[in-house]
Simulated assay, not measured.
Amino acid sequence: MSFTLATWNINSVRLREPIVCKLLQEEAPDVLCLQECKSPVELIPMEAFAALGYTHMVARGQKGYNGVAILSKLPIKEVGAEDFASLGHARHIAGQLENGVTIHNFYVPAGGDVPDREKNEKFGQKLDYLTEMRDWFKASSPKKSILVGDLNIAPLEEDVWDHKKLLKIVSHTPIEVEHFNDVMAAGDWHDVTRADISEGKLYSWWSYRAKDWDAADKGRRLDHVWATGDIKAAAHSSRVLRDARGWEKPSDHAPVFATFDL
């Protein structure tokens, strides 16, 4: 079985329903994982998505904030939703396909603006969230699993527009990257995107603050696709759909794709 998966921080699934439908029509991934849906589950516009063949969904929602959903053409059942760091936020949902593959969809806290947990509670929450992710995966030893989402960390020098300038900016600080790598190691996770696209700058997010985001190209790779070691060789054809950042009323994130032969 071969299936294509995409992950996208949509920044309000109801507000951006038209571009979600555009993606589903034009790119037709088998599975689309959305973050920052900003909607109760019952108000996610499933009728429009089902009309395009996405008749299955597992999700966690909140009014106006956070929220994660997995839309699928393929049958999928919910197998978990964790509240790491006890924040009471809808930031994780896990679904399992009929072939036994588990998909974890995450929206890791952004962490605020100041990279100091003493001065910024949100930064501490982000580090605590990642620590609990690490411990959970270490205890559960995931197999035949894929992890996707807006992890709000750009780990590599080539994942940001200027490594030196961003070392003290939340999302690229050494302590965040250390926590990110600890989560990867704990679950035997492997970076599918960089396995396919190993060289060069690669971004999935460009700030709304940039007047011309495309020309300035001051991006960061905050959105990730990982696979456990037992299935990493099955992944291929990774890409970032950069054009989606320029669609009408866009998210500030672009979708990231990968295909798995399993």
Rank of each mutant, 00 (worst) to 15 (best):
N9P: 08
N9K: 13
I10F: 14
V20P: 13
D30K: 05
Q35N: 13
C37K: 10
C37G: 14
S39D: 09
P45Y: 14
A48M: 13
F49I: 11
G53N: 11
G53E: 09
T55K: 15
G64A: 11
G64D: 09
I70E: 02
L74D: 06
I76Y: 09
I76V: 15
E78T: 12
E78G: 15
A81K: 14
A81G: 13
S86N: 11
H89F: 08
A90V: 09
H92F: 06
I93G: 15
L97M: 11
G100N: 07
V101G: 04
N105A: 03
Y107M: 11
R117Q: 12
R117A: 14
K122G: 06
K122M: 08
K126G: 01
T131F: 00
L147T: 05
V148K: 00
G149Q: 01
N152H: 07
I153Y: 14
A154P: 03
D159M: 01
W161K: 03
P174E: 07
P174G: 10
D182K: 11
G187L: 02
V192W: 00
V192T: 05
T193N: 05
R194I: 11
D196K: 03
I197V: 14
W205I: 05
A210F: 12
D214E: 11
A215F: 07
L222D: 03
V225E: 00
V225M: 01
T228H: 03
G229F: 04
D230L: 06
A233N: 12
A233V: 08
S238Q: 03
D243F: 01
E248L: 04
P250T: 07
S251F: 10
H253M: 07
H253K: 06
A254D: 06
T259A: 06
T259C: 03
